[in-house]
């Protein structure tokens, strides 16, 4: 009896082991598929055009990084500095993304707070409205949007890229869910008794409690805005270099098929992904948890 028990138990263990190894290998393969394109781009950015033409596939760095960098940034050495400037790209994308993220989380917090803490006639209507428009994508209004912006002279302006973030239904929705599950309304009452004004209660008491939700939403808003190609390409009609976002610059580097220099093009693309990847890796634990949090709550 004991013998057969041991036998089946060791067979079971072996089965578990085999499955675990197979699954591990599949995961490793998928990770390679996720990482390989990025690694190739980064590595090819350090190789000379000639060596890429000889062999386009490499996962080890070359020795032409400073050369490529000079061609990318120096107007005397290559045509790329006319369409691509890495510092301007970072600056513009960073400015738009930070500003949009800031107003999005602040005003979404304000809206969610108003809808949770106060009772007023239109409260249910307002909440339902925000839920109902959650799914409406900006694309379906963009023809009217651009026409309107042209009429009021707001093209080639960052305002239409930043201000709409004040009304972000999905961020409000997330904040609403978060407040319902983890914001004690009694605390507002207590603050009132202590003589705190409504705005002060929001700033000094609600904001610190909502910080975790803010952080999660801020990251997703930031990434969304940083990666956005659609809206900036609509609004920044003149496509001036000093106004372009990183996305638009990358597009012009690739669209340029007259002055091909593979190493430089790879480097230009690599420079656009590198900072985001580094920040992501630093914050990764937090971000991965945040997606799950958003899903359970929404």
């Amino acid at each position: 009896m004991a013998d057969s028990y041991n036998q089946s138990s060791s067979a079971y263990k072996r089965m578990i082991m085999t499955h675990s190894i197979i699954r591990f290998i599949v995961c490793v393969l998928l990770s390679v598929i996720c990482l390989l394109p990025i690694i190739i781009i980064l590595m090819n950015g350090t190789r000379s055009s000639a060596s890429i033409i000889a062999n386009g596939f490499s996962i080890v760095p070359g020795n032409a990084l400073s050369d490529n960098w000079a061609k990318l940034t120096d107007p005397d050495k290559g045509p790329f500095s006319a369409v691509y400037n890495v510092w301007l790209g970072y600056r513009n994308s960073l400015f738009i993304s930070l500003a949009a993220t800031g107003v999005a989380v602040l005003f979404s917090g304000l809206t969610a707070y108003g809808l949770t803490v106060y009772h007023f006639k239109l409260r249910n209507f307002a909440t339902t409205f925000i839920l109902a428009v959650l799914m409406i994508p900006t694309q379906v209004v963009s023809a009217g949007f651009l026409d309107f912006m042209i009429k009021i002279g707001w093209v080639d302006n960052y305002l239409p890229l930043i201000l709409p973030a004040i009304a972000s239904p999905s961020t409000v929705f997330f904040m609403l869910q978060y407040m319902r599950s983890s914001f004690p309304l009694d605390i507002v009452e207590a603050a009132r008794i202590d003589g705190s004004g409504e705005v002060r209660t929001f700033v000094q008491i609600a904001l610190p409690i909502l910080k975790p939700a803010f952080a999660v939403q801020a990251i997703f808003m930031f990434v969304g805005n940083w990666n956005n190609y659609y809206t900036p390409s609509i609004i920044l009609l003149s496509n001036k270099l000093e106004q372009r976002t990183m996305s638009m610059m990358i597009q012009s580097v690739v669209a340029n098929d007259k002055n091909i220099d593979y190493g430089v093009q790879y480097l230009a693309i690599g420079m656009s992904v590198l900072p985001v990847i580094i920040i992501y890796l630093i914050l990764s634990k937090f971000i991965v948890k945040g997606i799950a949090l958003g899903a359970v709550k929404g």
């Binding site: 990482l35 990666n227 990183m246 996305s247 638009m248 693309i269 656009s272 992904v273 997606i291």
Partner: peptide, 14 residues
């Protein structure tokens, strides 16, 4: 999750 945070313009270019 990493691919999801890279900008579409860079992904297309890559």
């Amino acid at each position: 999750y990493l691919p999801n945070i890279i900008m579409a313009a860079s992904v297309a270019a890559m």
